[in-house]
Simulated assay, not measured.
Amino acid sequence: MDLKETDILGEHIDEHWYYRSKRAAMQKFLGDIRPASILDVGAGSGFFSRALLESTAARDAWCVDISYPEDSDDSAGGKPIRFRRAVDQLDTDLVLLMDVLEHVDDDVGLLADYVGKVPAGAHFLISVPAFSCLWSDHDVFLEHKRRYRLHEIERVAANAGLQVLRGSYYFGAVFPIAASLRLLERCYGKAERQPQSQLKRHSPLVNATLNALCAIELPVLASNRFAGLTAFCLARKP
């Protein structure tokens, strides 16, 4: 989760359709996995690990992000959540990499590094932006290196030493809208403009409408290998 987006939405991030929908998809994708401890890599504000602390029996979470000015501690759901610029070995059984790997040159290397920090049997939930054809100023603003097709992020996970359990796309319902906007941007955008985020605060009506549209996908989330704005991959350390 990018701190640039946290700065844009501020305390209203929990109201935004995109993050509410992605949180629901994360919980759906994890299924019956019940973590005892969470490692959230590139965690930003810790939005996703906070959600899991509040909704599961997980005892704690470690949020790691090189953008933190200093190490700090907080709590969520009455449980400790620790913010660190770096960590060594941890006895965690769920690792989140929510929109992280697209930011680095060596995605396999970064993932493999964290595979080595946790015990065998730990699950990894990875999300990345999907489809290079959707590349836009938003990606440039967030300093992305790439977008992925589903088989590509699954290959990254396998090359990092993980056993891929399942993968799927999400935000398929809004994919046509996003694709149309990207096309318009390329046809009529100005070359000299400064890249900027396309994330912004919306009215309650817009948030409710888009959130409901995305919720329709949840029952068939596991079977969507066709299209979406985000690719999810669930894997396990052998």
Score class of each variant (00 low, 15 high):
S21K: 10
Y148Q: 02
S223P: 09
V41M: 03
G121N: 00
E102I: 06
E11I: 09
D107Y: 07
R225I: 03
D14P: 05
I66S: 12
A24S: 14
F29A: 08
W135I: 05
F226D: 03
P195G: 01
A178P: 04
Q27Y: 04
S136M: 05
L90D: 01
L184Q: 05
H138C: 09
D113P: 10
G167L: 00
N207E: 08
Q89L: 12
V128Q: 00
S72T: 08
Q194W: 10
E185S: 15
M26L: 14
C233R: 02
E70L: 11
L165I: 09
A130I: 00
P129F: 06
T56V: 08
L125P: 01
R84W: 08
H103K: 11
L90P: 02
Y170D: 02
V220L: 05
G161F: 12
L218R: 13
D137W: 15
R84F: 09
V220W: 06
Q163T: 14
V95G: 07
H144S: 02
M1D: 10
L110T: 12
S180P: 01
L3R: 11
D65Q: 08
E217N: 05
R146K: 13
L30R: 08
V174T: 09
A231E: 03
S223R: 13
S75F: 11
D105N: 12
D88T: 07
D73E: 14
Q194F: 10
S49D: 06
